[in-house]
């Protein structure tokens, strides 16, 4: 997995609550057997008009935000399905950080598995960052995972909380499966114990 440490980039404002996984990547694009290439269909139904042309009103189509690498979004971002295609599409487009007051659990987990950083902040901080993001090309934020800070365009800095293990894995770019396989003896011991205690599960 790619490491994540520090990012300075344009933040796009999406002040919509409950941005769901069908909005992020509609189901017709889930038929792929690859992880790559989904960025072109990110937010497809909002981003493109019926004739396939770009919707000029959609934030990521506006000149200032075409290269955004951060999204500042309304509450409960990523609700709905478990599809990892949602973070894959965001990442493929170039989004590495999403800031909101809350995230759906599965989306939140999935993001970390792909070297992306979802950041939870309080409502007041979100309102401030949303204002920053609405400044178009000047909407540059700097996210420092090591220091757990977001620095705004005016130099003001806010602190964010993150689980220490997730932070460690992201900073080091660690592969979960490799880590867990170091505990194979514990897994096997568990399986032996279960065979005796709940034999019907191993039959």
């Amino acid at each position: 997995m790619e490491k994540f440490n520090k990012l300075t980039g344009v933040a796009a404002p999406m002040p919509i609550r409950n941005i769901d996984t069908d909005m992020i990547i509609p189901k017709q694009f889930l038929k792929t057997i690859k992880r790559e290439g989904l960025g072109k269909n990110l937010f497809d139904e909002m981003r493109f008009l019926d004739d396939g042309s770009e919707n000029p009103d959609f934030v990521l189509n506006k000149p200032a935000y075409r290269n955004a690498s951060i999204i500042v979004a309304g509450e409960n971002f990523g609700c709905g399905s478990s599809r990892e295609h949602a973070p894959w599409a965001l990442k493929d487009f170039g989004i590495q950080v999403i800031i909101s007051t809350s995230f759906a659990d599965i989306f939140y987990n999935n993001s970390f598995k792909n070297g992306m950083l979802p950041i939870k902040v309080d409502a007041e901080t979100l309102a401030k960052l949303m204002e920053d993001a609405e400044r178009g090309a000047n909407a540059t934020l700097t996210v420092d995972l090591e220091a757990q800070t977001i620095e705004g365009p005016d130099g003001g800095t806010v602190h964010f909380e993150i689980d220490s293990f997730r932070k460690h894995c992201l900073l080091e770019g660690l592969d979960d499966i490799g880590l867990t396989q170091q505990k194979t003896s514990k897994i096997e011991a568990y399986e032996e114990k279960q065979k005796t205690a709940q034999p019907w599960l191993s039959a």
Binding site: R35, S81, S82, R83, E84, P87, I106, N109, N110, K113, N114, D163, F165, D176, I177, L179, T180, Q181, T184, I187, E191
Partner: peptide, 20 residues
């Protein structure tokens, strides 16, 4: 509970999951 594809891979490989 539902999981993402990276976690599917984790369960296939180890029959376990890292969770809070």
């Amino acid at each position: 509970f539902g999981i993402g594809t990276s976690e599917v891979e984790h369960v296939l490989a180890t029959q376990t999951l890292l969770q809070q």
